[in-house]
């Protein structure tokens, strides 16, 4: 089975063609073409078997120069966990100062991935 998809790793947005075979009931990507870098191949393999995303959002800050600090998942998380992660972030408050790279939440929504601040708010 041939699947066509657009790589989301960078703004080039390469058009990928992936060949997928079902082995023991699970999809297995056997070849990827159209990518200009190794990220494209990795993306197609993940996207067609177990899609993941990096999630970015904000968390409320008390006593800082700004009302909110931007945050991200330190690495990609399973796509189906996105709204669970957002639910956790809605319940979080932090106190200033927060520094770029600070861990705001560890193991968010059971993903094993931390939420880190992406800006310093003093």
């Amino acid at each position: 089975m041939i699947k066509e998809l657009t790589c989301i790793n960078c703004p080039l947005g390469c058009s990928l063609r992936a060949e997928v075979e079902i082995v023991d009931g699970n999809p297995v990507v056997t070849s990827v073409t159209g990518n200009t870098c190794p990220r494209g191949e990795a993306y197609a393999k993940k996207e067609l078997t177990h899609p993941t995303r990096i999630i970015t959002s904000t968390v409320r800050v008390h006593g800082g120069r700004l009302a909110a600090v931007p945050v991200k998942t330190a690495s990609d998380i399973p796509k189906e966990k996105i709204f669970d992660v957002m639910e956790v972030l809605r319940g979080i408050d932090v106190n200033a100062p927060v520094h770029l790279g600070d861990v705001v939440v560890e193991n968010v929504a059971g993903t094993g991935v931390a939420i880190v601040a992406t800006r310093t708010v003093e």
Binding site: C10, I54, T56, P70, K72
Partner: peptide, 16 residues
């Protein structure tokens, strides 16, 4: 605050 910045400049994916 989204990611996808810096792949060319810093060879890693950063937020704004």
């Amino acid at each position: 605050i989204h990611n996808g910045f810096g792949l060319h400049t810093f060879k890693e994916e950063l937020t704004g």
